[in-house]
Amino acid sequence: MRVSEFMAACLTDPEHGYYTTRDPLGARGDFITGPEISQMFGEMLGLWLAQVWADAGAPARFVLAELGPGRGTLMADMLRAARLAPGFTEAAEVWLVETSPVLRRAQAQAVPGARWADRVADLPQDAPLFVVANEFLDALPIRQFLREGALWRERMVGLEGDQLAFGLAPAAADPELDRRFADVADGTLVETCAPAEAVAAELAARGARCLFVDYGDWAGHGDTLQALAGHAPADVLATAGTADLTAHVGFRWIAEAAAPLRADFTTQGVFLERLGITARAQALARGDRADEIAGQHRRLTHPDEMGTLFKVLALTPRGAPQTPGFG
């Protein structure tokens, strides 16, 4: 099977899928995300939303959707910060795009009054759409291809004896891969993520205002498929269905798929600093919390932590004001 089919089965199988059977977040889970590290992360994104909403004319009703909302921590923190903008809370119709029954139960506790959708296509279409997604794109199934001269061989997952193993499909021409990866050397592995691009195209068709935060690059190559279990790297094939599977995001292809929306791109550290996270950290760092807050700030923004590895992509209608955090 393709790598994308393997990822989809491992993560979303209704009976055995990783995301459908557990809460993967936090110290007792397998990984931790920005909102779980510090309230400051969600507060900065909430301020971004409030300004973008105001710049859009402060519509009296709008759909505020989060894709892959985890436990609901990010949405709760964003709403708390964004309520500083008069009228924002009353205008926001909160939707969470989530398929996991386990996580929906946690989200209901964190975000009272939220509504749920299984897909972006299920979100209401009768109001302006604002979307936030943190560490959502990296979990969407990817395909992998190996350059072999002028042709490409797709990486597959199959059996070698009674063990899962990687293999390669027969070589074939692929003009789209030629266009995207014209300069990569023979023997280079590249990745594509059609589901992520489909989401971007759908949001563009809605004229949505979007913010994506994830790890990856503008356009890179190499094998980035990884498994994480117990906050440590794991064998991708040996932990099928019991570990988180992700891959780095190619943000250039998301931006291309979202044309004609305007795309702004920067690192997480720069984005959060421009939004004022240092001032917020200083306000929170009182008494015996000073070291804790300083550690959270460093983890979110420092180049040696999440500051450079994680990127931020904003998609907005052309002609709209420059969104905060991008210079």
Rank of each mutant, 00 (worst) to 15 (best):
A205N: 03
V132I: 13
E256A: 05
F271E: 02
A258G: 00
L129G: 05
G57I: 03
E160V: 14
R286Y: 02
L225D: 10
G269N: 07
Q226S: 09
A50D: 11
G42P: 01
G307K: 07
R280M: 11
A240D: 08
S38G: 12
R289T: 15
G220R: 14
I293Q: 07
G161K: 05
L49D: 01
P14I: 12
E148N: 13
V102F: 05
L177P: 11
E160C: 15
D264H: 15
L284I: 09
M78H: 05
D291S: 15
A54P: 00
P195M: 12
M1A: 15
A133L: 10
A290D: 07
G149K: 07
A133Y: 03
R71G: 03
A92L: 07
A65L: 04
G167P: 07
Q51H: 09
L96T: 00
A60K: 09
V131H: 02
A227H: 06
V157M: 07
T12A: 09
H221Y: 12
P124V: 09
L47R: 14
P112M: 04
E197A: 05
T301L: 09
A171R: 13
A196N: 01
A232C: 04
G17A: 14
Q322F: 02
P124T: 11
V131A: 02
T246G: 00
R252A: 06
D178T: 11
R274I: 11
D174C: 14
G187Y: 12
D288E: 11
F130M: 12
P233I: 03
W253E: 06
I293P: 05
E66V: 07
A320G: 08
A169Y: 11
G68Y: 04
A182S: 10
A91V: 06
D291W: 15
A54C: 08
S4G: 15
L189E: 04
G216I: 09
D244Q: 02
L225T: 09
T323P: 13
G216Y: 08
L245C: 00
E148I: 10
E43R: 14
W95Q: 05
I32P: 00
D217K: 08
Y18A: 01
G207W: 06
W53Q: 03
E191Y: 11
P14R: 12
T242M: 12
P141K: 06
N134R: 05
L67I: 10
H231C: 01
A194Y: 11
A139Q: 06
P141W: 11
E176H: 13
M156G: 10
L103I: 07
A238M: 01
A169T: 06
A139W: 06
R153G: 03
G87W: 02
L96E: 00
R180P: 10
V111T: 04
Q51T: 13
E197M: 02
G307Y: 07
F265V: 03
T12M: 12
Y215I: 08
L164M: 13
L275I: 11
A76F: 09
A58K: 07
D304I: 01
A227W: 02
H297G: 06
D118M: 04
F166H: 14
A263M: 00
V102C: 09
L74N: 03
D162S: 15
A165V: 08
G319V: 14
E98F: 01
A263F: 01
A208D: 01
G220T: 11
P35Y: 04
D217W: 15
R71F: 01
L137Q: 05
F145G: 13
H248K: 10
E98P: 00
W48F: 08
E66Y: 02
I32H: 00
F251C: 01
A150C: 08
R252Y: 02
